[in-house]
Amino acid sequence: MKAEILPGPVMESYKLNRRNFWDSIPPLWDSDSEETLVCCQVRAETHDVKSFFFAAPAGGSFVFQPGQFITLELEINGAAINRCYTISSSPARPHTISITVKRVPGGPVSNWLHDNLKAGDKVKVLRAAGEFTCASHPAEKYLFLSAGSGITPLMSMSRAHHDLSDDRDIVFIHSARTPDDIIFERELSLIAASQQNFRTRFICERLGQRRDWSGPTGMLSLAALKLMAPDFMEREVFVCGPAPYMKAVRTMLDEAGFERTRYHEESFSFETLQQESQPQATSHGAPATDGFEINFQKSMRQITCGPQQHVLEAARNAGVRLASSCAQGMCGTCKVKLISGTVDMQHKGGIRQREIDQGMVLLCCSKPLSNLVVDK
């Protein structure tokens, strides 16, 4: 499968906007002032995984930590949908930024991206955010564990170390369904070939169509981990993948007596996040009786929200239906205009400073400091 490249006229315009590319350091891209990026390449990684590369129209460069994510603001079938995707590119190559997306059966966003987004298209994007990064946890030895599309943040970290010629002691173990499902297999092998202390291992559940596979098959286990990374107890561990995979990893590390302070995980399963954000018991699901009044102006609903309760949680408990996705201040889906009142908002990158200055808030991570009137 061939990568899609910018058509001639678009490429010429792109080159014109980036004159003096090699002669000067481009300005930093700021999503508050330039919220739209241009897709400059689409690359097939496997049969159901594609990487989408973006550039700033004015030629700005990107600054982020390896492992962070960006939020895409999309319009699909007339509906506004926000979705977070981990950056898969290296921050040491700042002129483009990429995400790597697996097609999910029935997934409205992943299927739309695979079927519609092409080189030359423009997409609204929120700046990089997130705390899952090895940059915040420097160590002499790392263990990267990933499964499926959870490879993306760890690939960004691996690429960053490689680009910076930082030959850190890294063992990267990736789990896939079959050998044909291994994302970035060739590139990881090339990094391992050029970095003396970078070792990569792949383990597949089954062979699939590829019969020349000589690597291990089955699921990652403590016994397999001890074989592939005998000194794993001495390493800083970063994990990303489906929720069952990460739960299994936590269980095996706990069994081995691994120190949890050196364990870090990340997941962008929105279905899981939504389930976790729902009230778990009837006693917690009752509307608050003491607190602040929240008035939803358009729907003419009024609820009470406790001072230590997020507005979205109080609204759900009271039966008010509001659009939401991550419930952690990352994606921006629950963004609304605050007409009056003040809140304590602790977001994780799902809103621009310009929008905050205009009175917008994210209900999922906002606690009321007064009575509120919301434009919803």
Rank of each mutant, 00 (worst) to 15 (best):
residue 115 D to K: 10
residue 359 G to D: 05
residue 197 N to D: 09
residue 254 D to A: 11
residue 297 Q to V: 14
residue 46 T to V: 05
residue 98 S to Q: 10
residue 264 H to A: 08
residue 50 K to L: 13
residue 368 P to T: 14
residue 278 Q to K: 01
residue 357 D to L: 03
residue 17 N to C: 00
residue 25 I to K: 06
residue 220 L to W: 00
residue 301 R to V: 10
residue 172 F to T: 04
residue 361 V to I: 15
residue 44 A to W: 04
residue 254 D to Q: 13
residue 80 A to S: 07
residue 119 A to L: 03
residue 65 Q to S: 14
residue 76 I to E: 09
residue 35 E to W: 10
residue 177 R to G: 12
residue 375 D to S: 08
residue 161 H to R: 13
residue 31 S to A: 13
residue 318 A to R: 03
residue 271 E to F: 12
residue 178 T to N: 08
residue 245 Y to C: 04
residue 262 R to N: 14
residue 201 R to G: 09
residue 216 P to T: 14
residue 164 L to T: 15
residue 289 T to Q: 02
residue 167 D to R: 10
residue 350 G to H: 01
residue 142 Y to K: 00
residue 217 T to F: 09
residue 71 T to D: 01
residue 222 L to H: 07
residue 122 K to D: 10
residue 212 D to S: 10
residue 360 M to V: 10
residue 324 S to M: 03
residue 326 C to E: 12
residue 72 L to S: 05
residue 185 E to H: 14
residue 191 I to W: 07
residue 343 V to M: 02
residue 202 F to T: 01
residue 18 R to K: 02
residue 305 C to M: 03
residue 314 A to M: 01
residue 74 L to N: 08
residue 236 E to N: 08
residue 372 L to K: 06
residue 342 T to W: 02
residue 262 R to Q: 13
residue 148 G to Q: 13
residue 109 V to Y: 13
residue 69 F to I: 07
residue 198 F to S: 04
residue 267 S to H: 12
residue 15 K to N: 07
residue 170 I to P: 00
residue 172 F to A: 05
residue 224 A to K: 11
residue 211 R to W: 13
residue 362 L to K: 05
residue 210 R to E: 14
residue 106 G to M: 13
residue 145 L to S: 05
residue 51 S to L: 13
residue 319 G to K: 13
residue 14 Y to I: 01
residue 190 L to F: 12
residue 36 T to G: 02
residue 146 S to C: 15
residue 247 K to E: 15
residue 370 S to C: 04
residue 343 V to H: 00
residue 264 H to T: 12
residue 75 E to G: 06
residue 21 F to E: 01
residue 36 T to H: 10
residue 199 R to F: 06
residue 234 E to I: 08
residue 14 Y to R: 07
residue 174 H to Y: 03
residue 257 G to A: 11
residue 116 N to T: 15
residue 198 F to E: 03
residue 322 L to R: 01
residue 201 R to F: 12
residue 17 N to A: 07
residue 355 E to L: 03
residue 5 I to V: 06
residue 158 S to G: 12
residue 27 P to T: 12
residue 272 T to A: 12
residue 306 G to W: 14
residue 362 L to W: 00
residue 240 C to D: 03
residue 34 E to G: 02
residue 202 F to G: 01
residue 168 R to V: 05
residue 191 I to L: 13
residue 52 F to D: 09
residue 116 N to H: 14
residue 247 K to R: 14
residue 292 F to Y: 03
residue 197 N to K: 12
residue 165 S to F: 11
residue 27 P to Q: 10
